[in-house]
Design a protein around this nucleic acid. Structure first.
Lengths: 217, 217
DNA sequence: ACTATTAATTTTAACTTAAACAATATCACG
DNA sequence: CGTGATATTGTTTAAGTTAAAATTAATAGT
């Protein structure tokens, strides 16, 4: 029985992983919790506690964690030690930006196709040579998913008017996890259980920053 | 002395606010905590506790909260009862998408200009007629901010290679709050205190969804 | 061998959410 | 028009979760 890890911890773990990517240290060197604090902003105490909690006790006193080992452990926890395929629904600016997002490689996440309804987009490809992805019509979604049953994740970047309806359609066609980028909070229908939805609405954090800045006193 | 509100509460408050926007109810009708749960996914207990905590005790038994009053209270808490001006650094796909983001209006947040270094972009305008925003060269940033001292917030959508450097520059020129959309965790220099930075890196939530979906068991 | 640094672990405190419950206003109904 | 049932709030209390701090142990370097 595996311990449940909260999304908050997962987020920090992803920070540590990103830090390793960013620093690009040789695999046989060490990185300390202090250094991780410096790069990620997460306190070294928290770093160690996270590692302890997760059963990562691979540190060496006075040196830190072996980069190679740490990479491996973090990947395992994040479930990015194997490759995941995703599709993007909506080939507008956000969708295209996401599909071009080069770091997907380091995270073992692959965009296989984009879907849209705009005539001028459907049938074209986007991306750099060698990693082009087709833009397909959304009517072909069901067929596509039947032919590619290992695709369980969709990134939703359609206009907000169409967002909820599209989400429902995705779920109906077997998608199990969705990140919603449309500026509108979506909900999964009650009946359908076990669907993972993250509302990562663009602009949400504006509220936070405005609050922090202007609510003072 | 004002009570400190955590960002987590602020996020929920913004959900309630978004729910009101979405439902678009007449101002003189009522909305219950149950209904808010239905729309936002936040439990009605939590809703009531939030309101209690924040001193919003405007509910009527058996009916709920008067939409008009609730709007007013939420706006006040979120500090969007007055207008805030922001600039966008990076006029690429994400930056353009953000600048077109129509909901800014309802949130009293205005994009006044975009900045970039690309020759083909600088000097042009984007946006629908009547709300066009200029794209300026980033070299003009300092001057622009001196002429518009009420702009304290920047949205950062530059490529990740330039992100940290650009953030430092922004801070140097008096920007006080930044939302970073580049796929890289940034940090504010230690010396500079009181700068609000939110790393809202595009793609961060992919880790979460992948974990939730593939780590099962 | 001593010192300083760092990890592992435990303890404590803070924060967050959930649950419970009393109070009250509205509505249905006779 | 009165009355009772009920929905819904305001408030408190408890539980659960998360983060911080403190402590212990180990090891590298001098």
């Amino acid at each position: 029985m595996k311990k449940k890890i909260s999304l908050r911890v997962i987020r920090r773990i992803s920070f540590y992983y990103e830090a390793l990517l960013k620093l690009n240290l040789p695999e046989n060197t060490y990185i300390s919790s202090r250094k991780l604090e410096e790069v990620t902003g997460v306190s070294c105490n928290q770093v160690r506690q996270d590692f302890f909690y997760l059963g990562i006790s691979i540190g060496k006193q006075k040196k830190g964690y072996l980069v190679k080992k740490l990479f491996k452990e973090l990947k395992k926890i994040l479930s990015i030690d194997h490759s995941s395929k995703v599709i993007i629904i909506g080939a507008g600016r956000i969708g295209q930006a996401l599909s071009n997002y080069k770091l997907f490689k380091d995270r073992n996440i692959m965009v296989t196709a984009l879907f849209d309804i705009k005539k001028e987009l459907v049938g074209t490809e986007i991306g750099k040579p060698g990693q082009k992805k087709p833009i397909l019509h959304i009517d072909g979604l069901e067929t596509y998913l039947m032919e590619n049953p290992d695709i369980k994740i969709a990134l939703l970047t359609v206009p907000e008017e169409a967002a909820q309806e599209t989400l429902d359609k995705l779920i109906g066609h077997g998608i199990r996890g969705v990140v919603n980028f449309a500026p509108k909070i979506l909900k999964v229908p009650k009946e359908t259980r076990e669907i993972q939805l993250i509302n990562d609405c663009i602009g949400t954090s504006l509220y936070k920053i405005v609050y922090q800045l202007y609510s003072k006193k």
